[in-house]
Each structure stands twice: as C-alpha cells, then as structure tokens.
Design a protein around this nucleic acid. Structure first.
Length: 293
DNA sequence: CCGCGGGCCTGAGAGC
DNA sequence: TGCTCTCAGGCCCGCG
C-alpha cells in the first residue's frame, strides 16, 4: 500500500503523539508480523522516550533515549491510529473498514500522554525492528537504499548516472529502491505519465554516452518531485487501507491520471489516447500508449 | 546483472 | 446468498 507520500503522511500524524512522550507500555500481540519480533522487542521500547520521528524511504524511524531506533514498515496494508486515553479516537473521525473490529491491531504503544498508538495490519507484510543507532549503517533493511526522491542529492544527473548501465525498463528502474527510494507502483506510473515517457523505455536512455542526463531525465525528475509533493499535500492516496492517523482519508487518489484508470480517456490536452494496462515485472502498469513515448 | 514466478497474508469485488 | 477467482500502495528468494 503505502508509498512515500502515505508514509510521510503517517509520520506527520504520529509525530505530535510520539515526540517527547515516553512509551510506558508496549504490546506485541502476536509473535510475528512479516518476521518474528525480536525477543527483546518490548523490553527495548518500554520506558523509552521518543526524541524524534523520521522517515527514510518507506520506513518510519523513531529515535529513543536509549540510543536505539525503532524501524517501522507498513508493508501493503499497515496503518497507525492514535487513540485518546478514553479509548476513542479523535471525535467523529476514525472509521477504518478493516479495523473497526480491531481484529488486526497487532502492536500498541501506550504513551505517557495517555494516548495509545495502534498499528493495524491485516495482511501482515509490515514489520518492526529495534536497532542501535550506531549500527544503522550495518542494517540490512536500510543498506543499499538509493537517494530520497525529495532530497537534495536526487537530481537528473544522479538518476542518469544510476541508470546509465541498466538494461531494465524505466518502470523497473524507478521501482528499484536502490535507484531511488520511496516510489511504488502508483507513483511510478503517475510520474512516467506526467513525463510523457513510456514505462517500457530503456532506463539507460536517460543518460547520454558520457552518462550525462538527457532532457528526459530532467523532465522525469521534475515529474517525480511534483507528483510526490502534491500527494503529500493531499494526505496520500487512500485506496483501501491507507488512513491518516486521525482516521481521515487521503485524497490524492482523485488526482490519479492513469493508475487504476484502464479504459478511460487520456487527460493530456490534445491527446485522444486511452489508458491501458499491462503487466511488467509482475505488477500492473497503467499508461497512455499515445502520449508516453 | 536481469526478468520471471512464487511466496508471504487477508479481504474486496466481480462473475456465476 | 455464497462460492470461486483475481487482484491489491511491498519486498524477498531462487531459478534460468
């Protein structure tokens, strides 16, 4: 489910509930999510104050006073909500279709403020792991992640360089977290559409023979920036699972131009194309064959 | 190094 | 109603 804009939305929602508050009690209600919980998972959280909540790619990272960092990944269907100490969410807000029964509430952090932070994940592709801050660079989950797409170092020159020797398609290259970290199926489709580039185009063609960026590379980076920024502003995209931590929907799904719009008319001015869908690397690709070249 | 298929899970929606 | 089938914002592994 969640790509960078959804994870960033969750981070912003959790930040006021976590930062500066102590984890009084932590519950892991099953022995595993995607992976088994560490044996000392709960022990390393309880009594710790969260000093900051950051994000790297699709990971949330909570800094703890002990020097540990809590890594959290939402997988496909993970969501967080913040409950007040009366057991209710913020009035009138939380109505999650899959979690009203609370059957998939797998992790709960009881904070010193009285708030409970609840992680719900029906499919359990999400995971959490506590690691020492000074061992971050040795963490396999984070090793090899490429640049943040909204960070300073990600630009056309860098994208061109990392694609120069690739034999893959643009679609596969952008989904590869080693090339750029945080994009997923939706935003790759949308960025390629906005850049008028075919998902089948060879990634290496973003670079000249001297590994300089082409205009296509520049246009693509601009499209990635704008689609991510707009999506963050909209609170992410809610298809079935993603909620803001208040329970409210994100609304960027209304701004999709190709994703899940198979058969609809292309929205590009002057283009008479129809949005098509095909499978690439096992994932659905949505695109307009007429204006994406 | 690459693409592909399968796997991990639950649930929604379509079609019959 | 209810069954079966396909598909889903991620990611990993092994195969050829």
């Amino acid at each position: 489910m969640p790509e960078l804009p959804e994870v960033e939305t969750v981070r912003r929602g959790l930040q006021p509930a976590m930062e500066g508050a102590k984890i009084v009690k932590a519950e892991a209600r099953r022995k595993d999510l995607r992976f088994p919980f560490q044996k000392d998972f709960v022990a390393r959280l309880e009594g710790q104050t969260v000093t900051g909540l950051g994000r790297r790619a699709k990971y949330l990272m909570a800094d703890l006073t002990s020097g540990d960092v809590l890594l959290m990944h939402l997988g496909m269907s993970g969501s967080f909500r913040v409950q007040n100490d009366d057991g209710n969410t913020t009035p009138g807000q939380f109505h999650h279709p899959r979690s009203e029964t609370r059957t998939h509430d797998h992790v709960v952090f009881h904070m010193s403020s009285g708030a409970a932070i609840v992680f719900n994940d029906p499919r359990r592709f999400g995971y959490m792991k506590v690691i020492a801050r000074n061992a971050l660079e040795d963490e396999p989950l984070l090793n090899g992640l490429g640049p943040e797409p909204l960070g300073n170092e990600f630009d056309a020159a860098m994208l061109a360089r990392s694609c120069a020797n690739k034999k893959t398609s643009l679609k596969a290259a952008l989904l590869d977290q080693r090339v750029v970290a945080g994009l997923g199926n939706i935003y790759v489709c949308e960025a390629l559409y906005r850049a008028h580039l075919s998902p089948r185009r060879l990634a290496a063609k973003l670079a000249t023979k001297k590994a300089e960026p082409t205009d296509h590379a520049r246009h693509l980076v601009n499209s990635i920036h704008s689609v991510l920024n707009q999506a963050i502003k909209a609170g992410g995209s809610s298809i079935s699972d993603h909620r803001q931590t208040s329970g409210e929907l994100g609304y960027f799904q209304h701004s999709f131009q190709v994703y899940d719009r198979e058969g609809e008319k292309c929205q590009t001015a002057g283009c008479s194309g129809i949005v098509r869908r095909f499978t690439q690397n096992g994932r659905s690709t949505f695109w307009c064959p007429k204006c994406q070249k």
